[in-house]
């Protein structure tokens, strides 16, 4: 399941909901991304996450479907927040559940790598010098490309 929302999420509740009643699950991997208060040499006050609403959910669904094709997942969840977020705030949650840990670990990392390079979200940081758009990093593309090379 995927969700894009302004409000915060409760990791414990999401985890409980995901595994409720499913005793085929033997391993769960969970990733939470948070807002850092430092970026290079600048101190960041907060950031605003924008997205392309018509495209975001479609891309996230595609990425999640791809993970489910590659690994035998019992359940998966991606939540991505939008709007203004203060340092320390949760931005993104990915949970993957499978019979065994390896599929859960790999699918969780795959989902994060791909959503960082495919899902149309952009960050604008507030710094003492004003607002600035965060630029994509080549290392993100490289992280995502790992999964293509393995085909």
């Amino acid at each position: 399941m995927i969700r894009v929302q302004e409000e915060d999420f409760d990791v414990g509740k999401e985890l409980a909901d995901l595994r409720a009643g499913n005793t085929a699950i033997g391993g769960i991997a969970l990733f939470v991304g948070t807002v850092r208060g430092e970026g290079g040499e600048a101190t960041i006050g907060a950031m605003t996450l924008e997205h392309y609403p018509a495209m975001t959910e479609r891309e996230l669904e595609r990425i999640e479907a791809e993970a489910n094709e590659r690994w035998p997942l019992e359940a998966s969840l991606v939540i991505h927040r939008i709007g203004r977020l203060e340092p320390g705030a949760q931005i993104v949650l990915v949970i993957t559940a499978s019979a065994h840990r390896q599929a859960a670990f790999e699918a969780c990392e795959f989902l994060m790598d791909w959503l960082k390079t495919k899902a149309p979200f952009w960050k604008r940081e507030e710094t003492p010098d004003g607002e600035r758009w965060v630029e994509a990093r080549a290392s993100d593309d490289e992280a995502a490309a790992r999964w293509s090379q393995e085909d």
Partner: peptide
């Protein structure tokens, strides 16, 4: 058609 132009995406955590 709706054609959108945008920079490389920067979602998720850094």
């Amino acid at each position: 058609d709706e054609i959108a132009f945008f920079p490389p995406v920067t979602g998720g955590a850094r």
